[in-house]
Lab assay of single mutants.
Amino acid sequence: EPLWIRPDAPSRCTWQLGRPASESPHHHTAPAKSPKILPDILKKIGDTPMVRINKIGKKFGLKCELLAKCEFFNAGGSVKDRISLRMIEDAERDGTLKPGDTIIEPTSGNTGIGLALAAAVRGYRCIIVMPEKMSSEKVDVLRALGAEIVRTPTNARFDSPESHVGVAWRLKNEIPNSHILDQYRNASNPLAHYDTTADEILQQCDGKLDMLVASVGTGGTITGIARKLKEKCPGCRIIGVDPEGSILAEPEELNQTEQTTYEVEGIGYDFIPTVLDRTVVDKWFKSNDEEAFTFARMLIAQEGLLCGGSAGSTVAVAVKAAQELQEGQRCVVILPDSVRNYMTKFLSDRWMLQKGFLKEEDLTEKKPWWWHLRVQELGLSAPLTVLPTITCGHTIEILREKGFDQAPVVDEAGVILGMVTLGNMLSSLLAGKVQPSDQVGKVIYKQFKQIRLTDTLGRLSHILEMDHFALVVHEQIQYHSTGKSSQRQMVFGVVTAIDLLNFVAAQERDQK
């Protein structure tokens, strides 16, 4: 057995438009009618409502009807409940999964919650491996369901041993009777949507819809739904939504950006999952974080739909894509998950301010006199920076000697690579993860907040409520011999709460 199987392995699926269902090699399930009293909570997966979006479509000038398939009504709160249950049931049916076995899954959280929910009911041990950027709410729900959680670096490539995929496979090879159901490759993922989600949409719309818009992560949702719609409703256009920084969209030119990270969760990847059939997507749109969270908040405030950030991405694209539809036509959007997962993220004004998705003037509360002053007023001194090749031991000596707790790590040209902190280095040394002679590049981390000289002290204040420091950066445009230009970030300084307090105190003292 291989040590790991690539999540982007070539698909062996034989589905073709027009091929009889009787030739399918898979076990198919028909939607079942729910009894009045459910035998367990797993029976509350599927049969989610279709809700008309009344205000947002009109606000953006849509002539067509805009409908939302509300997947956050599933038992675990997301569309991923469907595939989690289906993968477990299919693994039980073919004898792969037996009582007492362990389920391991690399996930952005929602599939993990679905699997942990099913594992709690069915009696399996469950280990979820997820990147650090995923919300604390997801972690809390997983723990409450009895799952064990392993976190991995957000910026690790999918084929790196440190990625959530790599760590999951390492655990599988170490733990007896453990299984990775593997949402990236498992046919049960798109089949769950082909058999149930798509049929529900067709039934709820009486077979009449002209466009379907869905955000894409593993691709199982859009693949399964689109294949069924292509068979039953061939005139329906399928629109895929991919965040900026991901590479799922086609044509490839759409993916060209210097951005590699994004805040919206559960969609987009740096590889093409095996289950994603991009041939059934008629057109791709890219979405960005700001519009995703703005539209998610709009869905909550104006439509009462308590959905997550990827739902915002989907609707932001839908109001663009559906401009081509006329009166009497219908566009369906998939709202994948609930706001429950993001209470401390985009639902929080403070978080939105820190990330730059909300401006101070958007909030009406009274601010102190210094709130709208610029960061450049602080008069920061030149920063202490270190090269990635310097040793951890030497870096600790320098920081202690100069009285700093942290320093930016830059390359020879001064471009920011990340940050090192005294606390992080000492804990890594004590844990045996690094040696004093190791290069400081081994303990770089990139989960820090950046701020510009033109940003306000109010925004800085919000950042420092949650973080010990902020890195002050400025952009530099560099022209190359080819005539092309590129933008790079340079370090201007490091600012802490002490710097802000000293500035405010000094100004008030001078005024007296």
Rank of each mutant, 00 (worst) to 15 (best):
A296Y: 05
A407V: 13
I498S: 15
K433H: 13
W370V: 09
V410R: 13
A301V: 12
D438R: 15
I398H: 02
Q354S: 15
A413P: 10
K355G: 07
F285Q: 02
V434E: 14
D289T: 02
Y342I: 06
Q450M: 14
Y262S: 02
E253R: 11
Q406M: 06
E412P: 14
I463M: 13
F492H: 15
E465F: 04
A470T: 12
V491D: 02
M419N: 10
V443C: 07
L373P: 12
A407Q: 12
R350N: 10
L373E: 13
Q447A: 14
E365Y: 09
M352G: 04
F404E: 02
A301F: 13
A316H: 12
G414N: 02
I390C: 09
V280P: 09
A413T: 13
M343P: 02
F404I: 15
P251H: 07
K320M: 11
V504I: 02
T314E: 02
A249E: 07
L335R: 02
Q489W: 10
H372W: 12
M490T: 02
V264D: 04
Q487W: 09
L299W: 02
T421P: 14
L464W: 10
V415E: 13
T344N: 02
T482Y: 10
L417P: 11
T314L: 02
D277S: 05
Y445L: 11
K320L: 10
E253D: 12
I247K: 10
G493R: 08
V339F: 06
K442C: 13
S485G: 07
Q439N: 13
S461K: 02
R509C: 13
I451V: 14
A497D: 15
I477H: 12
I498C: 06
A431S: 02
D277V: 04
N288W: 11
P383G: 02
L378I: 04
E291A: 14
E253P: 02
K512V: 14
A431F: 02
T294L: 06
M425Y: 10
Y445W: 02
V504P: 02
K367L: 11
M343E: 05
Q450G: 02
S381P: 13
E263W: 08
I463A: 02
N341R: 02
L387P: 15
I267W: 06
V415A: 13
Q354L: 12
H480A: 12
E508G: 14
E250L: 11
L471P: 14
V281D: 06
D411I: 11
G414E: 13
T260I: 13
K446W: 12
C331M: 12
S481H: 14
K367I: 11
P336D: 15
G245T: 07
Q450V: 08
T482L: 11
E303H: 11
E324F: 13
Q511T: 14
V264G: 02
V315M: 09
Q507T: 02
Q478N: 13
V434C: 12
Y342P: 02
V339I: 02
A470I: 02
L471D: 02
A301S: 06
L254N: 08
E475C: 14
R488H: 13
Y445C: 09
P436C: 14
T421G: 02
H468P: 13
N341W: 02
D362R: 14
S246P: 13
L335W: 02
E365C: 11
Q439V: 11
A322C: 09
E365I: 14
F357V: 02
F285G: 09
G483Y: 11
R488Y: 14
L363N: 07
A407D: 02
V472C: 09
F448Y: 12
Q435N: 15
S246Y: 04
Q329A: 12
N288L: 10
E258Y: 07
T391K: 04
E291V: 12
E303M: 02
S428F: 11
P368Q: 05
S313K: 06
V375L: 11
G379V: 13
T294W: 10
A506E: 09
G304A: 05
Q406G: 14
L387C: 09
I498Q: 04
G312M: 02
A505P: 02
V333A: 14
V241G: 11
I390L: 12
E365G: 12
Y269K: 04
E365N: 05
V420P: 05
E303Y: 06
E258W: 10
S310L: 02
L299T: 15
Q435F: 11
W284T: 02
E412R: 06
F295N: 02
W284E: 02
G483F: 12
A301Q: 07
C307Y: 07
